[in-house]
Simulated assay, not measured.
Amino acid sequence: MREVTKAVIPAAGLGTRFLPATKSMPKEMLPLIDRPVIQYVVEEAVNSGIDDLIIITGRGKRAIEDYFDDSPELEMHLREHNKMDLLKRIRDISSLIDIHYIRQKEPLGLGDAIMRAEKHISDEPFAVLLGDDIIQNHTPCTRQLIDIFQQEGQSVIAVEEVPDDKVSSYGIIRGTRVGPSLLHIDDIVEKPQLADAPSRIGAIGRYVFTPQIFDCLDETVPGVGNEIQLTDAIRILLQRQDVYAHAFEGKRYDTGDKCGYLEAIIDFALENPETRDAVLQHLRSAGLRTAMQVQGDEGAVLAHSEHMEI
């Protein structure tokens, strides 16, 4: 069984849920305290044993390339002002991993974005990490999937149970349990209505694929949103080989969603020694223990804070 050493991060989306901020700023560069979202995803890949990374970008995404590149002027400035700790952090970013960039010329869907990496991946197994999802755990989610791939020799995707009101935003699986956290996927449906969903188990943004997924993507016709859907390609792959779903261990933040992004900011700020005390003081003074009465997006974020030890 070949080791999984390559990964693809699709980062070509338009980020419409965060307009107007994403009109000129890639959504993957939205900051969580002092690091952009995509850095956490890249670090997960590195910590999972990936040493060859392809980021699929699009128009207006140059900031991603600049971020992971060397910055001689900034480094010189930090050195001259004896800010050696910051200098090390900046250098560490550019030396994380070898990154290749491929542009998706048109926003034709996640499946199409992954297809852009076919020539680079060739006939090797590879991981896919969506730039919207941050997953925290001692064992990275991608590493969990790679370990299962090494055992089973087949494609495996990360899943979790999603709320009823989110079912229509996910690929939903129907599966047969074959282990404590492992399902054999019998079917998968892209963004079904709640009444038509085969379960509440949704595919989230981590995958490990055999290279046969590229043949399936090539055969996939435009689906939901008139885009090439990865879920539809997985349905084709199911007809040719086993595909598994793993109920991953860890805390997931959907930073492509406003509430998920704000929840990540709160939690990450509470884990950061520089910000923890000030954030705790603000949360307490804001009277968040009565936040369940607040409606809408603000209420969801405050309700999240309700369950934290403040």
Rank of each mutant, 00 (worst) to 15 (best):
I265S: 07
Q150H: 11
G58E: 11
R177V: 11
E28C: 08
V162F: 08
H77R: 05
Y40I: 04
G179R: 08
K105E: 13
G175W: 08
I157E: 07
H81R: 14
G111C: 06
E124M: 01
I33C: 07
F18P: 06
A269W: 02
G296F: 03
E263A: 12
L32V: 15
G202T: 13
F126E: 02
M115L: 15
I114K: 05
T5D: 00
T176L: 11
I146H: 04
Y253R: 02
V208D: 06
N226P: 01
G260C: 04
G171Q: 01
K105H: 12
A245K: 04
I213V: 01
R143A: 11
Q212V: 08
A291I: 09
E65T: 11
P273C: 04
G58Y: 11
I121C: 10
I114D: 02
V189A: 07
R89F: 03
T255I: 04
A300F: 13
S71Y: 03
I266R: 07
L110A: 02
G49T: 11
D66L: 15
C141M: 10
E124S: 04
L270I: 13
K119I: 05
D66E: 15
S155M: 13
P273N: 03
F268I: 08
G299L: 00
L130K: 12
K83D: 00
G13N: 14
L230Q: 02
P31M: 14
S305Y: 03
A45P: 01
Y261W: 11
F209V: 04
G131Y: 03
V301C: 11
T142P: 05
K88P: 01
L238H: 06
I90D: 08
E190K: 05
L110S: 04
L19N: 11
T139S: 09
Q281P: 00
I90K: 08
T142W: 00
M25R: 12
Y170N: 14
I148H: 10
H246Q: 02
F268E: 06
I38G: 09
P20G: 09
N82Q: 12
D297F: 02
P10R: 13
V178D: 08
A278G: 03
E263M: 12
Q229G: 01
I213K: 00
G58K: 14
A245N: 07
T210W: 04
H100M: 08
A113E: 13
N47F: 02
I97R: 12
D70K: 14
M84S: 02
V41P: 03
E80G: 06
K258I: 14
D215P: 01
S71M: 13
S169V: 10
V243P: 06
A11P: 03
P273V: 06
D123F: 09
T231K: 01
G131I: 10
T22E: 14
A7P: 01
K166A: 15
L14N: 07
L230T: 00
E75S: 06
I97C: 14
H120A: 01
G109L: 04
V189E: 00
D51C: 09
F149N: 10
E75W: 10
H100N: 07
E118H: 09
Y261H: 13
A45L: 01
F214L: 00
P273L: 02
A158P: 03
E309Y: 13
T210Y: 12
I265T: 09
E65C: 13
I9G: 10
G296W: 08
P72H: 11
I93W: 06
E65M: 15
L110I: 12
Q212M: 11
